[in-house]
Nucleic acid binder design. Structure first.
Length: 521
RNA sequence: GGCAGUGUAGCUCAGCUGGUUAGAGCGUGGCACUCAUAAUGCCAAGGUCGGUGGUUCGAGCCCACUCACUGCUACCA
Protein backbone atom coordinates (compact mmCIF):
# COMPACT_ATOMS: atom_id res chain seq x y z
CA UNK A 1 0.00 0.00 0.00
CA UNK A 2 1.55 3.25 -1.04
CA UNK A 3 1.05 5.99 1.46
CA UNK A 4 1.26 9.57 0.28
CA UNK A 5 2.12 11.99 3.00
CA UNK A 6 -0.55 14.61 3.27
CA UNK A 7 0.73 18.09 2.50
CA UNK A 8 0.01 21.14 4.57
CA UNK A 9 0.82 24.62 3.31
CA UNK A 10 0.33 27.38 5.85
CA UNK A 11 1.06 31.06 5.45
CA UNK A 12 1.02 34.16 7.56
CA UNK A 13 0.14 37.45 5.98
CA UNK A 14 3.18 39.24 4.65
CA UNK A 15 4.09 42.15 6.90
CA UNK A 16 4.42 45.72 5.71
CA UNK A 17 7.92 46.69 6.79
CA UNK A 18 7.70 50.43 6.95
CA UNK A 19 8.41 50.00 10.63
CA UNK A 20 9.81 47.38 12.94
CA UNK A 21 7.84 44.30 13.92
CA UNK A 22 5.50 44.60 16.86
CA UNK A 23 3.61 42.20 19.07
CA UNK A 24 0.81 41.70 16.56
CA UNK A 25 3.25 40.40 13.99
CA UNK A 26 4.77 38.12 16.58
CA UNK A 27 1.38 36.77 17.59
CA UNK A 28 0.44 35.82 14.06
CA UNK A 29 3.81 34.20 13.49
CA UNK A 30 3.75 32.26 16.77
CA UNK A 31 0.25 30.96 16.19
CA UNK A 32 1.06 29.94 12.64
CA UNK A 33 4.26 28.35 13.82
CA UNK A 34 2.37 26.34 16.42
CA UNK A 35 0.00 25.09 13.74
CA UNK A 36 2.89 24.26 11.42
CA UNK A 37 4.70 22.37 14.18
CA UNK A 38 1.52 20.56 15.11
CA UNK A 39 1.03 19.37 11.55
CA UNK A 40 4.64 18.25 11.20
CA UNK A 41 4.39 16.29 14.43
CA UNK A 42 1.20 14.80 13.11
CA UNK A 43 3.06 13.51 10.09
CA UNK A 44 2.21 16.07 7.44
CA UNK A 45 4.57 17.36 4.82
CA UNK A 46 4.47 21.01 5.85
CA UNK A 47 5.43 24.12 3.96
CA UNK A 48 5.27 27.18 6.19
CA UNK A 49 5.63 30.61 4.65
CA UNK A 50 5.98 34.14 5.97
CA UNK A 51 7.52 37.29 4.56
CA UNK A 52 7.25 40.97 3.83
CA UNK A 53 5.17 43.13 1.50
CA UNK A 54 7.61 45.82 0.46
CA UNK A 55 6.04 47.91 -2.27
CA UNK A 56 3.68 50.83 -2.21
CA UNK A 57 3.47 54.50 -1.50
CA UNK A 58 4.01 54.31 2.24
CA UNK A 59 7.29 52.45 1.86
CA UNK A 60 8.47 55.05 -0.63
CA UNK A 61 7.46 57.89 1.65
CA UNK A 62 8.98 56.40 4.76
CA UNK A 63 12.20 55.73 2.88
CA UNK A 64 12.36 59.28 1.65
CA UNK A 65 11.80 60.63 5.13
CA UNK A 66 14.68 58.54 6.40
CA UNK A 67 16.95 59.43 3.51
CA UNK A 68 16.98 55.92 2.11
CA UNK A 69 15.92 54.33 -1.11
CA UNK A 70 12.79 52.21 -0.75
CA UNK A 71 14.85 49.08 -1.23
CA UNK A 72 17.32 50.11 1.45
CA UNK A 73 14.44 50.60 3.86
CA UNK A 74 12.96 47.29 2.83
CA UNK A 75 16.29 45.53 3.27
CA UNK A 76 16.74 46.95 6.71
CA UNK A 77 13.27 46.24 8.01
CA UNK A 78 12.85 42.90 6.32
CA UNK A 79 15.98 41.91 8.21
CA UNK A 80 14.26 42.98 11.42
CA UNK A 81 11.29 40.76 10.60
CA UNK A 82 13.57 37.88 9.82
CA UNK A 83 15.37 38.46 13.09
CA UNK A 84 12.10 38.37 14.96
CA UNK A 85 11.34 35.01 13.39
CA UNK A 86 14.70 33.70 14.51
CA UNK A 87 14.23 35.08 18.00
CA UNK A 88 10.84 33.42 18.25
CA UNK A 89 12.24 30.18 16.89
CA UNK A 90 9.73 30.22 14.03
CA UNK A 91 10.05 27.22 11.75
CA UNK A 92 9.01 28.87 8.49
CA UNK A 93 10.47 27.15 5.45
CA UNK A 94 10.71 30.28 3.39
CA UNK A 95 10.64 34.02 3.88
CA UNK A 96 9.35 35.80 0.85
CA UNK A 97 10.00 39.42 -0.01
CA UNK A 98 7.84 40.99 -2.67
CA UNK A 99 10.84 42.84 -4.06
CA UNK A 100 12.44 39.59 -5.14
CA UNK A 101 12.69 38.79 -8.86
CA UNK A 102 10.71 35.57 -8.40
CA UNK A 103 7.81 37.59 -7.11
CA UNK A 104 7.92 40.09 -9.95
CA UNK A 105 7.76 37.19 -12.33
CA UNK A 106 4.86 35.57 -10.53
CA UNK A 107 2.86 38.78 -10.20
CA UNK A 108 3.25 39.59 -13.86
CA UNK A 109 2.36 36.04 -14.80
CA UNK A 110 -0.88 36.01 -12.82
CA UNK A 111 -1.72 39.45 -14.16
CA UNK A 112 -1.34 38.16 -17.70
CA UNK A 113 -3.51 35.18 -16.99
CA UNK A 114 -6.24 37.37 -15.54
CA UNK A 115 -5.89 39.68 -18.52
CA UNK A 116 -6.01 36.77 -20.95
CA UNK A 117 -9.21 35.71 -19.31
CA UNK A 118 -10.69 39.08 -20.15
CA UNK A 119 -10.88 40.27 -16.56
CA UNK A 120 -8.58 43.28 -16.72
CA UNK A 121 -9.44 46.53 -18.47
CA UNK A 122 -8.25 50.11 -18.47
CA UNK A 123 -10.56 52.77 -17.10
CA UNK A 124 -10.63 55.70 -14.75
CA UNK A 125 -10.64 55.54 -11.01
CA UNK A 126 -12.27 58.56 -9.48
CA UNK A 127 -13.38 59.73 -6.11
CA UNK A 128 -13.01 62.23 -3.32
CA UNK A 129 -9.43 62.20 -2.18
CA UNK A 130 -7.90 63.74 0.89
CA UNK A 131 -4.22 64.46 0.47
CA UNK A 132 -3.76 64.77 4.21
CA UNK A 133 -5.43 61.44 4.97
CA UNK A 134 -3.96 59.81 1.86
CA UNK A 135 -7.28 58.17 1.30
CA UNK A 136 -10.40 58.18 -0.79
CA UNK A 137 -13.75 58.76 0.82
CA UNK A 138 -17.23 57.83 -0.11
CA UNK A 139 -19.68 60.59 -0.86
CA UNK A 140 -21.68 59.56 2.21
CA UNK A 141 -18.77 60.04 4.55
CA UNK A 142 -18.19 63.64 3.59
CA UNK A 143 -19.46 66.77 5.23
CA UNK A 144 -20.21 69.88 3.24
CA UNK A 145 -18.92 73.21 4.48
CA UNK A 146 -19.45 76.78 3.32
CA UNK A 147 -19.50 77.31 -0.41
CA UNK A 148 -20.13 73.60 -0.99
CA UNK A 149 -16.62 72.65 -0.01
CA UNK A 150 -16.33 69.01 0.99
CA UNK A 151 -14.46 67.66 3.97
CA UNK A 152 -13.32 64.23 5.07
CA UNK A 153 -14.39 62.87 8.46
CA UNK A 154 -11.01 64.00 9.75
CA UNK A 155 -11.82 67.55 8.75
CA UNK A 156 -9.31 67.57 5.94
CA UNK A 157 -10.45 69.02 2.64
CA UNK A 158 -11.05 66.59 -0.19
CA UNK A 159 -10.81 67.04 -3.91
CA UNK A 160 -12.34 65.15 -6.80
CA UNK A 161 -9.63 63.26 -8.60
CA UNK A 162 -9.65 60.98 -11.59
CA UNK A 163 -6.87 58.63 -12.35
CA UNK A 164 -6.33 56.17 -15.12
CA UNK A 165 -6.18 52.69 -13.69
CA UNK A 166 -6.48 49.08 -14.64
CA UNK A 167 -9.46 47.31 -13.19
CA UNK A 168 -10.13 43.73 -12.28
CA UNK A 169 -13.59 42.48 -13.13
CA UNK A 170 -14.34 41.43 -9.56
CA UNK A 171 -18.04 41.99 -10.12
CA UNK A 172 -18.08 39.01 -12.46
CA UNK A 173 -17.16 36.67 -9.62
CA UNK A 174 -19.89 37.46 -7.15
CA UNK A 175 -21.93 34.34 -7.83
CA UNK A 176 -18.96 32.03 -7.92
CA UNK A 177 -17.72 33.46 -4.62
CA UNK A 178 -21.07 32.98 -2.96
CA UNK A 179 -21.15 29.45 -4.27
CA UNK A 180 -17.71 28.92 -2.80
CA UNK A 181 -18.81 30.11 0.65
CA UNK A 182 -21.95 28.03 0.51
CA UNK A 183 -20.24 24.90 -0.70
CA UNK A 184 -17.30 25.18 1.64
CA UNK A 185 -18.57 26.54 4.94
CA UNK A 186 -15.17 26.40 6.60
CA UNK A 187 -13.48 28.42 3.87
CA UNK A 188 -13.60 31.48 6.11
CA UNK A 189 -13.01 31.27 9.81
CA UNK A 190 -13.98 32.04 12.43
CA UNK A 191 -17.71 31.95 11.64
CA UNK A 192 -18.32 35.56 12.57
CA UNK A 193 -15.91 36.63 9.83
CA UNK A 194 -17.55 34.33 7.39
CA UNK A 195 -20.93 35.92 7.92
CA UNK A 196 -19.47 39.35 7.38
CA UNK A 197 -17.85 38.36 4.14
CA UNK A 198 -20.94 36.64 2.83
CA UNK A 199 -23.15 39.61 3.55
CA UNK A 200 -20.56 41.88 2.00
CA UNK A 201 -20.48 39.93 -1.22
CA UNK A 202 -24.25 39.57 -1.25
CA UNK A 203 -24.54 43.34 -1.29
CA UNK A 204 -22.79 43.33 -4.63
CA UNK A 205 -19.23 43.66 -5.81
CA UNK A 206 -17.68 46.47 -7.79
CA UNK A 207 -14.72 46.10 -10.03
CA UNK A 208 -11.42 46.68 -8.36
CA UNK A 209 -8.75 49.21 -9.20
CA UNK A 210 -5.53 47.23 -9.39
CA UNK A 211 -2.90 49.66 -10.69
CA UNK A 212 -1.50 53.06 -9.84
CA UNK A 213 0.25 55.74 -11.83
CA UNK A 214 0.81 57.99 -8.83
CA UNK A 215 3.82 56.14 -7.56
CA UNK A 216 6.46 53.93 -9.10
CA UNK A 217 7.63 51.73 -6.20
CA UNK A 218 5.95 48.59 -7.35
CA UNK A 219 5.85 45.89 -9.95
CA UNK A 220 5.30 47.27 -13.47
CA UNK A 221 2.09 46.29 -15.19
CA UNK A 222 2.91 44.01 -18.12
CA UNK A 223 2.78 46.00 -21.33
CA UNK A 224 2.17 49.36 -19.68
CA UNK A 225 5.08 50.57 -17.64
CA UNK A 226 3.32 53.81 -16.73
CA UNK A 227 1.44 51.71 -14.20
CA UNK A 228 2.58 49.68 -11.24
CA UNK A 229 0.43 47.05 -9.63
CA UNK A 230 -1.53 48.15 -6.63
CA UNK A 231 -1.40 46.20 -3.40
CA UNK A 232 -3.95 43.51 -4.28
CA UNK A 233 -2.19 41.69 -7.05
CA UNK A 234 1.24 42.47 -5.70
CA UNK A 235 0.70 41.30 -2.13
CA UNK A 236 -1.72 38.41 -2.45
CA UNK A 237 0.29 36.75 -5.18
CA UNK A 238 3.16 36.11 -2.76
CA UNK A 239 1.58 32.86 -1.69
CA UNK A 240 1.90 31.28 -5.09
CA UNK A 241 5.24 32.91 -5.78
CA UNK A 242 6.68 30.96 -2.90
CA UNK A 243 5.19 27.80 -4.32
CA UNK A 244 7.09 28.38 -7.53
CA UNK A 245 4.48 30.00 -9.72
CA UNK A 246 4.40 30.37 -12.66
CA UNK A 247 6.58 27.29 -12.94
CA UNK A 248 4.11 24.53 -12.31
CA UNK A 249 6.99 22.05 -12.49
CA UNK A 250 8.68 23.76 -9.53
CA UNK A 251 9.37 21.42 -6.62
CA UNK A 252 7.11 23.40 -4.33
CA UNK A 253 4.18 23.75 -6.65
CA UNK A 254 2.85 20.53 -5.17
CA UNK A 255 2.02 22.46 -2.01
CA UNK A 256 -0.44 24.75 -3.74
CA UNK A 257 -3.30 25.27 -2.97
CA UNK A 258 -2.53 26.49 0.52
CA UNK A 259 -4.21 24.65 3.35
CA UNK A 260 -4.75 27.86 5.27
CA UNK A 261 -3.87 31.53 5.19
CA UNK A 262 -3.54 32.78 8.75
CA UNK A 263 -4.17 36.51 8.70
CA UNK A 264 -5.41 39.38 10.84
CA UNK A 265 -9.13 39.96 10.97
CA UNK A 266 -8.70 43.28 9.18
CA UNK A 267 -7.67 41.67 5.93
CA UNK A 268 -10.05 38.73 5.87
CA UNK A 269 -12.06 40.23 3.08
CA UNK A 270 -9.08 40.62 0.79
CA UNK A 271 -8.20 36.99 1.28
CA UNK A 272 -11.73 35.69 1.12
CA UNK A 273 -13.02 37.79 -1.76
CA UNK A 274 -10.32 39.34 -3.92
CA UNK A 275 -7.80 36.54 -3.71
CA UNK A 276 -10.09 33.66 -4.66
CA UNK A 277 -11.56 35.78 -7.45
CA UNK A 278 -8.08 36.44 -8.79
CA UNK A 279 -7.26 32.76 -8.69
CA UNK A 280 -10.51 31.84 -10.39
CA UNK A 281 -9.70 34.32 -13.10
CA UNK A 282 -6.22 32.91 -13.50
CA UNK A 283 -7.52 29.37 -13.52
CA UNK A 284 -5.64 28.34 -10.41
CA UNK A 285 -6.81 26.28 -7.44
CA UNK A 286 -8.14 28.18 -4.42
CA UNK A 287 -6.74 28.04 -0.91
CA UNK A 288 -8.73 25.71 1.30
CA UNK A 289 -9.12 27.98 4.31
CA UNK A 290 -8.73 31.56 5.35
CA UNK A 291 -8.59 32.22 9.06
CA UNK A 292 -8.62 35.68 10.63
CA UNK A 293 -7.19 35.96 14.10
CA UNK A 294 -8.05 38.75 16.51
CA UNK A 295 -6.10 41.75 17.67
CA UNK A 296 -4.21 42.14 20.90
CA UNK A 297 -4.84 44.92 23.32
CA UNK A 298 -2.85 46.00 26.31
CA UNK A 299 -5.34 45.84 29.17
CA UNK A 300 -8.08 46.50 26.67
CA UNK A 301 -6.32 49.47 25.09
CA UNK A 302 -5.11 49.36 21.56
CA UNK A 303 -1.40 49.39 21.12
CA UNK A 304 -0.23 52.70 19.85
CA UNK A 305 2.92 54.71 19.81
CA UNK A 306 1.24 57.66 21.48
CA UNK A 307 0.14 55.53 24.43
CA UNK A 308 3.66 54.20 24.68
CA UNK A 309 2.42 50.63 25.01
CA UNK A 310 3.95 49.24 21.85
CA UNK A 311 6.05 46.38 23.06
CA UNK A 312 8.98 44.73 21.42
CA UNK A 313 8.23 41.04 20.99
CA UNK A 314 11.88 40.07 21.09
CA UNK A 315 12.39 41.85 24.40
CA UNK A 316 9.22 40.26 25.79
CA UNK A 317 10.27 36.79 24.74
CA UNK A 318 13.54 37.32 26.53
CA UNK A 319 11.91 38.75 29.61
CA UNK A 320 9.46 35.89 30.16
CA UNK A 321 11.18 33.14 28.26
CA UNK A 322 10.23 32.14 24.75
CA UNK A 323 8.01 29.26 25.77
CA UNK A 324 6.11 31.28 28.32
CA UNK A 325 5.67 34.12 25.87
CA UNK A 326 4.25 31.78 23.24
CA UNK A 327 2.19 29.85 25.73
CA UNK A 328 0.50 32.89 27.17
CA UNK A 329 -0.86 34.19 23.91
CA UNK A 330 -1.87 30.81 22.56
CA UNK A 331 -3.50 29.63 25.79
CA UNK A 332 -5.09 32.81 27.05
CA UNK A 333 -6.74 34.02 23.88
CA UNK A 334 -9.30 31.93 21.99
CA UNK A 335 -7.72 31.86 18.56
CA UNK A 336 -9.81 34.08 16.33
CA UNK A 337 -10.98 36.39 19.11
CA UNK A 338 -9.42 39.62 20.28
CA UNK A 339 -7.35 39.32 23.39
CA UNK A 340 -5.94 41.41 26.14
CA UNK A 341 -2.59 40.96 27.75
CA UNK A 342 -0.79 42.46 30.68
CA UNK A 343 2.36 41.79 32.57
CA UNK A 344 0.34 40.41 35.49
CA UNK A 345 -1.63 38.07 33.25
CA UNK A 346 1.51 36.74 31.59
CA UNK A 347 3.25 36.19 34.91
CA UNK A 348 0.12 34.53 36.24
CA UNK A 349 0.02 32.02 33.40
CA UNK A 350 3.73 31.44 33.50
CA UNK A 351 3.88 30.74 37.21
CA UNK A 352 0.58 28.93 37.61
CA UNK A 353 0.39 26.79 34.48
CA UNK A 354 4.00 26.35 33.51
CA UNK A 355 6.13 26.55 36.63
CA UNK A 356 3.68 25.30 39.28
CA UNK A 357 1.44 22.87 37.45
CA UNK A 358 3.59 21.30 34.75
CA UNK A 359 7.13 22.18 35.82
CA UNK A 360 6.59 21.19 39.40
CA UNK A 361 4.74 18.03 38.42
CA UNK A 362 7.74 16.91 36.43
CA UNK A 363 10.08 17.90 39.18
CA UNK A 364 8.22 16.24 42.04
CA UNK A 365 7.71 12.98 40.19
CA UNK A 366 11.04 12.70 38.44
CA UNK A 367 13.02 13.56 41.52
CA UNK A 368 11.30 10.68 43.30
CA UNK A 369 12.21 8.43 40.42
CA UNK A 370 15.73 9.67 40.61
CA UNK A 371 16.06 9.04 44.33
CA UNK A 372 13.96 5.95 44.76
CA UNK A 373 14.14 4.05 41.51
CA UNK A 374 17.82 4.09 40.81
CA UNK A 375 17.33 6.88 38.25
CA UNK A 376 15.57 4.49 35.90
CA UNK A 377 12.07 4.30 34.55
CA UNK A 378 10.37 2.31 37.33
CA UNK A 379 8.59 -0.99 36.76
CA UNK A 380 5.04 -0.77 35.62
CA UNK A 381 3.24 -3.07 38.00
CA UNK A 382 -0.46 -3.87 38.07
CA UNK A 383 -2.56 -0.86 37.15
CA UNK A 384 -5.68 0.13 39.03
CA UNK A 385 -8.68 1.96 37.65
CA UNK A 386 -7.05 5.23 38.68
CA UNK A 387 -4.09 4.59 36.43
CA UNK A 388 -6.23 3.32 33.57
CA UNK A 389 -8.42 6.41 33.66
CA UNK A 390 -5.54 8.86 33.84
CA UNK A 391 -3.62 7.17 31.06
CA UNK A 392 -6.72 7.01 28.90
CA UNK A 393 -7.26 10.75 29.23
CA UNK A 394 -3.64 11.35 28.23
CA UNK A 395 -3.80 9.06 25.22
CA UNK A 396 -6.98 10.84 24.14
CA UNK A 397 -5.11 14.12 23.80
CA UNK A 398 -3.79 13.55 20.30
CA UNK A 399 -7.21 12.77 18.88
CA UNK A 400 -8.83 15.62 20.74
CA UNK A 401 -6.10 17.94 19.58
CA UNK A 402 -6.67 17.03 15.96
CA UNK A 403 -10.36 17.73 16.38
CA UNK A 404 -9.70 21.15 17.86
CA UNK A 405 -7.14 21.85 15.17
CA UNK A 406 -9.86 21.47 12.56
CA UNK A 407 -11.09 24.84 13.74
CA UNK A 408 -7.66 26.12 14.78
CA UNK A 409 -8.78 26.18 18.41
CA UNK A 410 -5.24 26.30 19.74
CA UNK A 411 -6.41 27.51 23.13
CA UNK A 412 -8.70 24.49 23.43
CA UNK A 413 -5.87 22.09 22.72
CA UNK A 414 -3.84 23.69 25.48
CA UNK A 415 -6.79 23.69 27.84
CA UNK A 416 -7.17 19.95 27.31
CA UNK A 417 -3.49 19.28 27.88
CA UNK A 418 -3.53 21.27 31.07
CA UNK A 419 -6.65 19.53 32.28
CA UNK A 420 -4.58 16.36 32.18
CA UNK A 421 -1.74 18.14 33.95
CA UNK A 422 -4.19 19.07 36.70
CA UNK A 423 -5.60 15.56 36.86
CA UNK A 424 -2.10 14.20 37.19
CA UNK A 425 -1.26 16.50 40.07
CA UNK A 426 -4.47 15.38 41.79
CA UNK A 427 -3.66 11.76 41.08
CA UNK A 428 -0.16 12.16 42.41
CA UNK A 429 -1.36 13.85 45.59
CA UNK A 430 -4.08 11.29 46.13
CA UNK A 431 -1.70 8.34 45.67
CA UNK A 432 0.98 9.94 47.84
CA UNK A 433 3.90 7.92 46.52
CA UNK A 434 6.10 9.42 49.24
CA UNK A 435 3.95 7.52 51.73
CA UNK A 436 3.84 4.39 49.56
CA UNK A 437 7.62 4.40 49.62
CA UNK A 438 7.37 3.23 53.23
CA UNK A 439 4.45 0.87 52.83
CA UNK A 440 4.15 -0.49 49.31
CA UNK A 441 7.07 -0.10 46.97
CA UNK A 442 5.34 -1.79 44.06
CA UNK A 443 2.50 0.70 44.21
CA UNK A 444 4.94 3.57 44.46
CA UNK A 445 6.67 2.35 41.33
CA UNK A 446 3.41 2.07 39.48
CA UNK A 447 2.38 5.56 40.49
CA UNK A 448 5.71 6.96 39.41
CA UNK A 449 5.67 5.05 36.14
CA UNK A 450 2.16 6.24 35.38
CA UNK A 451 3.01 9.83 36.16
CA UNK A 452 6.10 9.69 34.00
CA UNK A 453 4.20 8.09 31.14
CA UNK A 454 1.53 10.76 31.29
CA UNK A 455 4.27 13.36 31.26
CA UNK A 456 5.67 11.75 28.15
CA UNK A 457 2.38 12.13 26.35
CA UNK A 458 1.97 15.67 27.62
CA UNK A 459 5.48 16.47 26.43
CA UNK A 460 4.71 15.13 22.98
CA UNK A 461 1.51 17.10 22.59
CA UNK A 462 2.95 20.28 24.07
CA UNK A 463 5.78 20.46 21.55
CA UNK A 464 4.04 22.81 19.10
CA UNK A 465 3.35 25.33 21.82
CA UNK A 466 6.28 25.22 24.21
CA UNK A 467 8.93 23.63 22.00
CA UNK A 468 11.94 24.22 24.21
CA UNK A 469 10.44 22.99 27.45
CA UNK A 470 8.70 20.09 25.77
CA UNK A 471 11.99 18.98 24.29
CA UNK A 472 13.60 19.24 27.68
CA UNK A 473 10.83 17.25 29.29
CA UNK A 474 11.13 14.51 26.71
CA UNK A 475 14.89 14.52 27.23
CA UNK A 476 14.35 14.09 30.97
CA UNK A 477 12.21 11.07 30.17
CA UNK A 478 14.85 9.73 27.76
CA UNK A 479 12.35 9.63 24.92
CA UNK A 480 14.34 8.89 21.75
CA UNK A 481 14.41 11.66 19.18
CA UNK A 482 12.68 9.50 16.62
CA UNK A 483 9.80 8.68 18.96
CA UNK A 484 8.43 12.15 19.37
CA UNK A 485 5.63 12.34 16.85
CA UNK A 486 1.98 12.41 17.85
CA UNK A 487 1.77 8.90 16.49
CA UNK A 488 3.93 7.90 19.44
CA UNK A 489 1.48 9.26 21.99
CA UNK A 490 0.02 5.79 22.37
CA UNK A 491 0.49 2.87 24.77
CA UNK A 492 2.64 0.99 22.28
CA UNK A 493 5.39 3.52 22.75
CA UNK A 494 5.07 3.86 26.49
CA UNK A 495 8.11 4.39 28.66
CA UNK A 496 10.17 1.26 29.03
CA UNK A 497 10.96 0.29 32.63
CA UNK A 498 14.66 0.17 33.31
CA UNK A 499 15.57 2.97 30.94
CA UNK A 500 18.13 5.23 32.57
CA UNK A 501 17.04 8.81 33.21
CA UNK A 502 19.08 11.95 33.70
CA UNK A 503 18.86 13.92 36.91
CA UNK A 504 15.79 16.17 36.71
CA UNK A 505 16.21 19.88 36.32
CA UNK A 506 13.59 22.60 36.31
CA UNK A 507 11.51 23.07 33.18
CA UNK A 508 10.33 26.59 33.88
CA UNK A 509 11.78 29.03 36.34
CA UNK A 510 9.15 30.88 38.31
CA UNK A 511 8.96 34.51 37.31
CA UNK A 512 10.03 36.63 40.23
CA UNK A 513 9.61 40.36 39.95
CA UNK A 514 12.95 42.08 39.76
CA UNK A 515 13.20 43.90 43.11
CA UNK A 516 11.43 47.11 42.25
CA UNK A 517 14.15 49.70 42.25
CA UNK A 518 11.88 52.27 40.70
CA UNK A 519 8.16 52.07 40.23
CA UNK A 520 7.11 49.53 37.63
CA UNK A 521 6.19 50.79 34.22
C1' G B 1 -29.56 53.71 9.40
C1' G B 2 -28.98 48.32 7.63
C1' C B 3 -26.90 43.41 8.64
C1' A B 4 -24.46 40.18 12.20
C1' G B 5 -22.95 39.06 17.06
C1' U B 6 -22.19 39.50 22.38
C1' G B 7 -24.15 40.31 27.49
C1' U B 8 -23.58 33.71 32.79
C1' A B 9 -19.62 34.01 39.84
C1' G B 10 -14.44 39.78 41.54
C1' C B 11 -11.74 38.55 36.48
C1' U B 12 -11.56 35.37 31.76
C1' C B 13 -14.92 32.22 29.93
C1' A B 14 -17.77 26.67 29.29
C1' G B 15 -22.73 25.52 29.19
C1' C B 16 -24.68 19.86 23.27
C1' U B 17 -30.81 19.39 19.99
C1' G B 18 -34.92 23.28 26.87
C1' G B 19 -35.27 18.81 32.11
C1' U B 20 -33.42 17.39 39.15
C1' U B 21 -29.18 21.54 43.88
C1' A B 22 -25.94 26.61 36.89
C1' G B 23 -19.85 24.77 35.80
C1' A B 24 -14.17 25.52 34.98
C1' G B 25 -9.66 28.30 35.50
C1' C B 26 -7.65 32.47 37.96
C1' G B 27 -8.38 35.46 42.34
C1' U B 28 -10.12 35.30 47.74
C1' G B 29 -10.67 32.63 52.81
C1' G B 30 -9.67 28.18 55.69
C1' C B 31 -7.47 23.24 56.23
C1' A B 32 -4.04 19.22 54.93
C1' C B 33 0.52 17.40 53.26
C1' U B 34 5.90 17.49 52.65
C1' C B 35 7.61 14.04 46.96
C1' A B 36 8.30 19.03 44.68
C1' U B 37 10.21 25.32 41.69
C1' A B 38 6.97 28.49 49.48
C1' A B 39 5.12 24.09 44.73
C1' U B 40 0.49 20.51 45.37
C1' G B 41 -4.19 18.65 47.30
C1' C B 42 -8.93 19.31 49.97
C1' C B 43 -12.99 22.44 51.58
C1' A B 44 -15.59 27.10 51.36
C1' A B 45 -17.58 31.83 50.14
C1' G B 46 -19.71 34.15 45.80
C1' G B 47 -24.20 34.27 40.41
C1' U B 48 -32.46 36.40 40.77
C1' C B 49 -27.49 33.40 33.86
C1' G B 50 -28.46 42.36 30.99
C1' G B 51 -33.99 43.81 31.70
C1' U B 52 -39.47 43.02 30.90
C1' G B 53 -43.21 39.91 29.19
C1' G B 54 -44.48 35.31 26.94
C1' U B 55 -44.54 29.76 25.13
C1' U B 56 -44.01 25.15 28.06
C1' C B 57 -45.35 20.33 33.03
C1' G B 58 -40.40 22.68 32.99
C1' A B 59 -35.95 27.96 30.02
C1' G B 60 -29.44 30.37 30.95
C1' C B 61 -30.83 27.67 26.57
C1' C B 62 -37.28 28.98 22.43
C1' C B 63 -40.46 33.73 21.09
C1' A B 64 -41.49 39.21 21.49
C1' C B 65 -40.00 43.73 23.14
C1' U B 66 -36.10 46.46 25.56
C1' C B 67 -31.08 48.26 27.39
C1' A B 68 -25.75 48.09 26.78
C1' C B 69 -21.50 46.79 24.07
C1' U B 70 -18.80 44.89 19.58
C1' G B 71 -17.99 43.83 14.38
C1' C B 72 -19.17 44.63 9.10
C1' U B 73 -21.27 48.29 5.71
C1' A B 74 -14.63 47.87 -0.10
C1' C B 75 -9.36 50.40 -2.71
C1' C B 76 -6.61 50.93 4.66
C1' A B 77 -1.72 45.49 4.68
Amino acid sequence: MTHVTERFFITTAISYPNGVPHLGHAYELMASDAIARFMRLDGRDVFFLTGTDEHGLKMAQTAEREGLTPLQLADRNAAAFRAMGKALDATNDDFIRTTEPRHHAASQAIWKRMEANGDIYLSKYSGWYSVRDEAFFDEKELTTGEGGKRFAPSGAPVEWVEEESYFFRLSAYQDRLLALYAGQPDFIGPDSRRNEVVSFVERGLEDLSISRKTFTWGIPVPGDTKHVMYVWVDALTNYITAAGFPDEQAPRWKYWPASVHIIGKDIVRFHAVIWPAMLMSAGLPLPKRVFGHGFLTNRGEKMSKSLGNVLDPIAMSQQYGLDAFRYFFLREIPFGADGSYSHEAIVGRLNADLANDLGNLAQRSLSMVNKNCDAKVPPRNALTGDEEALLASAYALAGGGRKHMDSFALHAILADIWRVVGDTNRYFAAQAPWALRKTDLARMETVLWTTAEVLRVIGLLAQPFIPLAAQKLLDLLAVPGDRRMFAHAVPDHALVPGTGLPAPTALFPRYVEPEAAGEGA
